[in-house]
Each structure stands twice: as C-alpha cells, then as structure tokens.
C-alpha cells in the first residue's frame, strides 16, 4: 500500500504494508535512523517522533495512521541551526551515550512549544516516557528547564 505524508517538511510516499510500524518506515524506508528502537513495545521512548506536533512512540503507530499527517523526526527538529532544546542539552550535559537523546529532545520540544516556562515537575511528567540509563535525568531536566524557546511571541 502507498502511504503519503509529510516528513520533516518534505512530502514522502512509501510503499509498505499498512500495519508497518512508522518506526520501521522511518528507519528502513526513509533512512532516518535518528529515531531508535530500544524496546519495541512503547516503554522506552527512544523512538519518539511528533505527528502533527504531538509526541508519540513511533513503534506503536502503523504507517497507515499517518497518511496525510505531518511527521517530524529528530532530523527535522531544527533547520540548519539547532533547536533550543538541543543547544541546552549540549550546554548542560543532557546527552551521554545518546541513544535516548533524540526521543528526549522530541518530547522536550513538544513540551516547550506549548509551555515555554514549565516547572520542574512539569518537565518530569513530560519526559517520563523517555527512559535514560546514563544521566539520572538531572542534567536533562536542567537543560529542558533552561532551554529558551522562541514561541514567536
């Protein structure tokens, strides 16, 4: 089946069975390997992408469900520059081994675009679906709390 959607601003067309996981379409068909598979059951969040701005686990989304949608992956989070979340993560040491980092950035970006000045508790809730084994989350939370997002105000 052919599925058409917009991925990181570009219209794309993929031919796969409709129940193919979005994660596999991104990684195998579109060669966007920034979204990672850590568990394949929606627990670790390493595959987090945004569909029409909303963060989701791409291992739990059949590609048929993104037909006509805007999908954003870590590769499309920022243009030529880096997103404020990425800059803050770099500055505060929020990335270590890096395997969970793209997913964390996607969740954090979604939070900050909606709520540019979240409390620490709100940051924790927003990131609770992204397991990280390296950082203890401390520096990730510091980074997200300090990321200055231009909300266009």
């Amino acid at each position: 089946m052919i599925t058409r959607f917009v991925c990181n601003g570009q219209p794309v067309e993929v031919e796969t069975p409709p129940m193919t996981r979005l994660l596999d379409v991104l990684r195998e068909e579109l060669r966007l390997t920034g979204s990672k598979e850590g568990c394949g059951e929606g627990e670790c969040g390493a595959c987090t992408v945004r569909i029409d701005g909303v963060p989701v686990m791409s291992c739990l989304v059949p590609v048929a469900q993104v037909a006509g949608c805007n999908v954003q992956t870590i590769e499309g989070l920022a243009g030529a520059l880096v997103h404020p979340v990425q800059a803050a993560m770099l500055e505060h040491g929020g990335a270590q081994c890096g395997i969970c980092t793209p997913g964390l950035c996607m969740s954090a970006a979604a939070l900050l675009e909606e709520n540019p000045h979240p409390s620490v508790e709100q940051v924790r809730v927003a990131l609770a679906g992204n397991l990280c084994r390296c950082t203890g989350y401390q520096k990730v939370i510091e980074a997200v709390s300090h990321a200055l997002v231009d909300t266009g105000e």
Binding site: G45, M57, L60, V125, G129
Partner: peptide
C-alpha cells in the same frame, strides 16, 4: 496511563 506519548494515542 503510560506517559505523555502513550496518552496522546
């Protein structure tokens, strides 16, 4: 339920 990404779907 789950976490944000799960709640969204």
């Amino acid at each position: 339920v789950g976490a944000v990404q799960i709640q969204n779907r």
